[in-house]
Design a protein around this nucleic acid. Structure first.
Length: 317
DNA sequence: TGGGTATGTCCAC
DNA sequence: TGGACCTACCCAT
């Protein structure tokens, strides 16, 4: 599932393409019919992302809360402003697809009629044959303006919330570097230090820190050379502060690039390989049995917090 | 072509 | 504890 960086990117896409004009809200699949009716015809005021949760505020003080879960995805189409994608993300299509400057990885493409899938990976689809495009498959909710459409499929959560309910949802979440800034660091340290629970478990706990998923967990622990089984209260405060700052850094990279790039210092061919092939992208994630990129020891794996954990038993102590 | 796995969370039993 | 959610991708056949 999309980890925190994807959700922040999606919120940004909504800010760009959906705030302002009234939005037609429907549930082609039918499972969100009542919620869609409550929002239909109202304008989106703002989009917010906290951890892996996204919130859209409508102009009558109701919010749409969405959590993508493992398989959820948003498909955007229409005259949407698309950020520059890497060649791999463009699905092997030629250049000039989004009209953005190829040399500037952070630039925003000129709005044009296109299709963009935003989930764990992002991909541009073919040009649109008709407008609005017919919903394909199980579309839980469709948001439609005169120039843009967004279809949601397969979310774990999709519901209408009052402002009080939004506050309550967010209150249950730990700090998010892009929401709380440096102030989140103290909260993170405190949340970890008071628990007699493995740090590998705590990083996956959205009440401890919001937005980290299984890939970032494994990579952050390796980057810190930290044993996943060390309990929270046993991790030195200074190491926890470094861990928080590293998460803030990786989240920023993820939001800017749309990819979970966790190996620093890559240049040239190695960088291109990492961008093109996710198996060349990580230190330990999904590399069970393969040699550690630093010491050569086979990467270990075990289940922790119901997910597969990966780590180097020699380097992480 | 078909099966297994996956970035996550909630709920029924 | 296991299933549901519902899709994309990779690999074996």
């Amino acid at each position: 599932m999309p980890e925190g960086h994807s959700v922040h990117r999606i919120a940004r896409q909504f800010e760009r393409s959906f705030t302002g004009p009234p939005v037609a809200v429907t549930s082609p699949q039918g499972r969100f019919a009542a919620g869609a009716e409550a929002l239909d015809g109202h304008a989106v005021v703002q989009a917010r992302a906290v951890g892996k949760q996204m919130f859209l505020e409508f102009d009558h003080a109701l919010w749409l809360r969405v959590h993508l879960g493992m398989y959820g995805a948003w498909d955007f189409a229409g005259e949407i402003a698309v950020e520059t994608l890497s060649p791999a993300e463009r699905g092997g299509r030629g250049t000039g697809v989004v009209g953005a400057n190829e040399d500037s990885p952070w630039s925003i493409g000129a709005p044009r009629r296109a299709r963009l899938r935003m989930a764990e990976s992002e991909k541009l689809g073919p040009e649109l044959a008709e407008w609005p495009p017919p919903p394909v498959g199980a579309v839980r909710v469709r948001l439609l303006t005169a120039t843009a459409v967004a279809d949601l499929r397969g979310p774990t959560a999709c519901e209408v919330q009052t402002p009080e309910e939004v506050d309550a949802t967010i209150a249950r979440l730990g700090p998010d570097p892009l929401v709380d800034g440096p102030a989140g660091e103290d909260a993170f340290v405190e949340n970890v230090r008071r628990r007699n629970v493995a740090i590998g478990q705590l990083l996956m706990d959205q009440e401890v820190v919001a937005g980290i998923g299984n890939v970032y967990r494994a990579e952050l622990l390796f980057r810190a050379r930290l044993d996943p089984y060390r309990t929270g209260k046993d991790v030195p405060v200074e190491l926890l502060r470094e861990l928080w700052r590293d998460w803030s850094y990786l989240l920023g990279v993820g939001v800017e690039t749309g990819q979970m790039l966790t190996m620093d210092g890559l240049t040239g061919d190695a960088l291109e390989r990492a961008k093109a092939n996710r198996h060349d992208r990580h230190w330990v994630y999904h590399r069970a049995g393969q040699p550690c990129r630093v010491c050569g020891t086979p990467i270990a794996t075990a289940e922790m917090a119901t997910r597969n954990l990966y780590w180097c038993p020699k380097d992480q102590t």
